[in-house]
Design a protein around this nucleic acid. Structure first.
Lengths: 333, 333
DNA sequence: GGCAGGGGTCGAAGCGCTTCGATTCATTAC
DNA sequence: GTAATGAATCGAAGCGCTTCGACCCCTGCC
């Protein structure tokens, strides 16, 4: 438990018999250093167990090597996806030699201003951006390098990354159509999500609707308690007895939907085919295993970090939509 | 987008007509400053929009005002609880004027060593600590202030916080017993969790078993796919036809358990009472709403930060177990 | 043989902050 | 009236690192 004196760059320089600046250049690679000197310095670093002091480095270089990950943490979020995303952000950031500061939106715009102004972080990653997100105007004003997950209404001049939800919705409809289904339905997010204008929900719906021309297609919002789901599903089949294809874009409800179908005596996939838009593990855990469109959280996180790093290096970084991928399992025919 | 020159403490000092050190003392409160001077400085801070440079502050004060939150992010974790926990940690840390660096265990012990040695963080918060956690020995050697969520086998000299799972298990058994149930069962975590020795699972089991003396009580592990859950439940009732009380300590499976009971034609709570150990929102979302023992993630996060802050101030910080709380809803009688 | 050029290294000047005396001035004690 | 006390403030020395310009010496070239 004794507090060991920390090893500084001066210690390394002394041990290797070189100047402090030489050690710095070896470590940063910003100037040519002879192979022998480099090796000597590297050995000393290893032997002494040297780790550069983050504060000093940040102060001198004006780069903290830290990015902020701003999670919304509001109700109705898709936790597993969020978590996958966060994991992938941390892992990718480390690959770029950066760490991740976790922020919640609770602190509000002030929080963003604070971390930016205090140079605690070099850039911002905002998750789960809404169509009219209050953070967006601030972001513009801040002029801090940033990448958004999700597309706000006006994405001009911003860098955004997201799954192409319109394509995902379309993919589901097309797949069901190709299977011969003539009457299909989309069970979407809870009402509150549409009301908030989260974007991804509307875009899925739009894609679904557009791709379903020529079919009978309906879409209904879907709450997340078992009872409400069961009610919604029952109503749906009451009003559309000919329904044979179901798209579920609500991870929390997908299990309930299957249970409700079971309770109604409709078997999957014999009576009705079900496609879910959700992570693979959820789809695989269901019974029957669900044909699903993957939300590529990991890929989104990876790309978001990559783009942010590009921006930090002063490179251009364009927004991008990631292609959804349909995996056929046992819930459709 | 133009990069505005950042406001430094020197700017504030000049604007307020005082020395740099005076500004520092106003902000830290470490020396007496007259009310008039303080006010003048505070006004300048506000007018200029000054935020201390984090790197410089860390360098000079040897305190980064950042703590690391180390999430395991392995399979079979309880995401919602984790998330609640993380949220509460961030919020509480902010109240102590600290930020939170997010780390995953992927980087391994090296990662802990790195952030500690580089003074990126002042202390560590390790989540989901296992009975024999490889991070624990390292932690001892590191001598970095830390708080663990969960209890390792040898907690000597460490500060740990957790829900009192033994008490939670006991509470469930006692409650069912008091309701007149004579034959009860515990559906626990997946096998892999017991195999890993995560501690909380065993402790719940131990508490349950100890409190169930005089009753017929069995405990079985429980996987998380619907099919396996249904199988497990069916088997359970085949072997124990007299079973009337069920404790479910597996958040991912709890919905499946209810569905399986429905499928078996056993109604809740008429035929069988169900108590879950899970967060309130999961319990409320089920049908019928579940009588449950709360995992007080928020409180755990709060206490963990509080203890860590105490340690950072050189104060003693004892391990603590938090009392579970039983909420009676509609799934028991 | 002298000089330009460049690879390799060094020294020193900060980066923006905290903190430790030192200093000033007004009180209080004797 | 003077010395001691204490409250309020200042000045300067770092904290550990990066980076700029200077320097040295070895090559290659005229």
């Amino acid at each position: 438990m004794r507090k060991v004196r920390t090893v500084t760059i001066t210690d390394v320089a002394r041990h290797a018999g070189v100047a402090v600046s030489t050690v710095s250049y070896v470590l940063s690679g910003k100037r040519a250093i002879s192979a022998t000197t480099r090796q000597r310095v590297l050995d000393s670093v290893r032997i002494l167990g040297y780790h550069p002091n983050a504060g000093a480095r940040a102060l001198a270089s004006k780069r903290a090597n830290v990015i902020a990950l701003v999670l919304p943490l509001r109700a109705g979020m898709n936790l597993p996806v969020l978590m996958q995303f966060a994991t992938s952000v941390v892992a990718t950031a480390r690959r770029y030699d950066h760490d991740v500061l976790l922020m919640t939106a609770d602190e509000g715009p002030e929080g963003l201003k604070r971390v930016a102004a205090s140079a605690l972080v070099d850039g911002l990653l905002l998750m789960d951006v809404e169509v009219r997100d209050p953070r967006v105007p601030l972001l513009r004003e801040l002029g801090e390098p940033s990448v958004l997950i999700g597309f706000p209404a006006d994405a001009e001049g911003l860098t955004c990354v997201d799954l192409d939800f319109a394509r995902a919705g379309a993919l589901c409809a097309e797949y069901l159509a190709s299977g011969g289904h003539r009457e299909i339905a989309l069970l979407g997010a809870p009402r509150v999500v549409y009301a908030r204008g989260t974007g991804f929900a509307e875009r899925t719906l739009a894609g679904f609707t557009a791709a379903a021309v020529g079919l009978k297609a309906v879409a209904v919002p879907c709450e997340e308690t078992y009872d409400e789901v069961a009610e919604t599903v029952k109503l749906l089949f009451d009003e559309h007895p000919g329904l044979t294809g179901l798209v579920v874009h609500n991870e929390a409800a997908v299990g309930h939907v299957l249970a409700a179908l079971r309770a109604l005596g409709r078997s999957v996939p014999e009576d009705v085919s079900v496609v879910a838009i959700c992570p693979d593990d959820v789809a695989e855990r269901a019974s029957p295993a669900l044909t699903s469109v993957l939300i590529p959280a990991e890929e989104v996180g990876h790309q978001a970090v990559r783009l942010l790093m590009a921006k930090l290096d002063g490179l251009p970084a364009d927004s991008m939509l990631l292609e959804p991928r349909l995996t056929i399992r046992e819930s459709t025919r």
